[in-house]
Simulated scan of single mutants.
Amino acid sequence: MSSLNDFFEKVITVKWGPEKKSVDIIDQTLLPNTIKRIQIRTQEEIWEAIKKLRVRGAPAIGVSAAYGMAVIANDIPDEDYEGFYTKFKASKEYLATSRPTAVNLFWALNRMEDTVKANREKPVSEIRRLLYAEAEKIREEDVQISRNIGETGFRLMEELKEDGKELGILTHCNAGTLCSAKYGTATAPMYMALEHGWKGTDMHVYCDETRPLLQGARLTSFELYNAGITTSVQCDNMAALLMKTGKIKIIFVGCDRVAANGDAANKIGTSALAVLAHHYGVPMYICAPSSTIDMATPTGDDIPIEMRDPEEIKSMWYKEPMAPAGVDASFNPAFDVADHRLITGIITEKGLCSAPYEEAFRKFGIK
């Protein structure tokens, strides 16, 4: 347990900088070869860190945005409420433009604004203090949410585990401690297994490399390997053969937004994985904090999909370009949407949701 806690401390995604005057994050664009922490303070630095994926993953984006707004508010010089709120709201709206798909970003920013509006009768100095407290509360809630998701996922793992055999698990992109305040979402069941006494060799996690940004290869395998879990990396297009050979018993993936009908937007490639899982009869679970469930979005067709720089495909991770300079790579969506009919279940911190999903969400009080 101590070694696992040491690992979490080493890779803590978001924390306060010195004297809480900045946000301290791991620059995830440098992983796995370099673990470097950077300090971000201005709204431009925070926006850039989220946009450029220095910090990424829906929960971590939410925590970083909350921390960032507390730091930004501390630097607003106005002591009258109206002047303070005007500048605060402008910064909040600016940060909201950094990533369009991850609903946690807007959820966290709205919570911070609600804190300002709910305390308008108090001195601005007190509002600043309350913003720091709210940001910390968002972080603490995220840790507990991840634990709850992990416990539900771990029980599903226990049902499939055979004595003397490793449990084959597949995941896509990174929904681990690096995408959250601690345990992650899709990797939380594996970390809970370690806390419940499983050895790292009791499971074998296969990480899709996750083209084009390679979050599975660079981040998830980095996490799980350093946590002592048996880990393999494979190309995304190898997942079908893995399932056909029977090596995969369960799939856990994260999510950036869930529509009311259960359609789930996650890193590009998740939709194809859902089709394969359904074909081969492998249970696939979406691990989603209730804050990512957007009941105002009826179906996955209504989820905005972020388009990324074509050079992420052609040259970003290579010493030399991997495609002719003039060839088109403009179709570079960051996400796709897994159809709810292909998903076995959606694990939230409130429990396991099964179809019909809108009914299940409302049963758990998700509005």
Rank of each mutant, 00 (worst) to 15 (best):
S91P: 08
T171F: 07
P123Q: 07
D142F: 04
N119S: 11
A175E: 00
V103R: 15
R111L: 09
M157C: 10
R155G: 02
F106W: 03
C173L: 08
D142N: 08
P100I: 14
A118C: 05
V143K: 15
S146E: 06
A133R: 14
N174G: 09
A108R: 00
T115E: 15
L156D: 03
L156H: 09
E162Q: 13
R129F: 02
N174T: 05
Y132G: 03
N174E: 07
R111F: 03
S125T: 14
T97V: 03
L160K: 14
A90L: 14
Q144E: 15
E151M: 13
I149Q: 00
A90I: 08
C173H: 13
A90Q: 15
K165G: 01
L170F: 12
A102D: 05
K89V: 08
A108Y: 02
I169F: 02
N174F: 06
E134V: 10
G164I: 05
Y132D: 09
V116C: 06
R99Y: 09
S125W: 05
A96E: 14
F88M: 11
R128E: 06
P123Y: 12
E113Q: 13
I138N: 06
K92Q: 15
I127W: 11
K137I: 02
M112H: 10
G176S: 08
T101H: 04
E113V: 10
N174C: 10
L156I: 04
P100R: 00
K117T: 15
T115P: 04
K89D: 13
A135M: 10
L131E: 02
A118F: 04
S91W: 01
A118V: 04
A96H: 09
A108N: 00
A118M: 08
L105G: 11
S98G: 11
E162I: 08
E93Y: 12
E141N: 11
V116K: 01
V143G: 01
I149S: 00
L105T: 11
N148V: 07
L130A: 09
F106I: 14
S98R: 13
I145G: 01
S98T: 08
R111D: 09
L105A: 12
F106V: 14
K92V: 08
I169D: 08
N104Y: 01
V143H: 11
S98Q: 13
L131P: 02
P123F: 14
A118H: 04
N119K: 10
N119W: 03
M112T: 03
N148R: 15
A90M: 12
R139I: 00
R147T: 02
I169H: 05
E158L: 05
E126G: 07
G153P: 05
H172W: 13
L131V: 10
T97N: 12
R120N: 12
N148P: 03
L170Y: 10
L131F: 03
S91D: 15
F88Y: 15
Y132R: 13
R147K: 12
H172S: 07
K161F: 01
R139H: 11
K92I: 07
C173I: 04
W107P: 07
E140D: 14
K161T: 01
C173G: 11
D114L: 10
M112R: 09
P100V: 13
E141L: 02
G150C: 00
I169Q: 07
